[in-house]
């Protein structure tokens, strides 16, 4: 069974704008920008595709770092750049349309970043106080 090629390339904040331009000049397409929290900050994953080819650029933005926007090259990236800014608190400079934190109507700042002081990580799902069902735990027998 053939599957998408798994190509993950590490890069840095300084290079990301030039690399994105290279992809555009090669005729590649912007697929997605994903934020995820890692121990030293927020990891940003830029995905590009050209038909069967599929590559991801990976960089880590430390707290306080400013990442250049790629939405001047790929206009549609503005959706994801505003999202990463609103949900993870990454500073992104020169977004094509910068909503300034108003793209998502969030009730607490940066809800998807656990380093945020506003996020309560002790929250667990319970439907009833008295007889709540057990949470699935790591040690459980898994699979289907």
């Amino acid at each position: 069974m053939a599957m998408d090629p798994q190509v993950f390339i590490n890069t840095t904040i300084a290079e990301i704008h030039d690399k994105a331009r290279d992809y555009q000049q090669k005729g590649w397409r912007f697929v997605a920008l994903t934020g995820s929290t890692v121990p030293g900050g927020v990891e940003l994953l830029y995905s590009f595709s050209d038909f069967k080819e599929f590559e991801q650029l990976r960089l880590v933005a430390e707290p306080g770092a400013t990442v250049p926007a790629v939405s001047d090259i790929f206009f549609n990236a503005l959706v994801f750049e505003n999202e990463v800014h609103d949900l993870f608190g990454v500073n992104i400079k020169d977004i094509a349309i910068d909503f300034g934190g108003k793209f998502y109507g969030v009730s607490v700042p940066t809800p998807m970043n656990p380093q945020s002081p506003f996020v309560d990580n002790s929250f667990t799902v319970t439907y009833r106080d008295s007889k709540s069902a057990d949470q699935p735990t790591d040690g459980q027998e898994g699979g289907n």
Partner: peptide
């Protein structure tokens, strides 16, 4: 045995 309660994705089952 309460396996159903632990597996339930929506926590709909309680077993005592």
């Amino acid at each position: 045995c309460s396996i159903c309660a632990k597996k339930c994705p929506s926590l709909a089952i309680n077993v005592d």
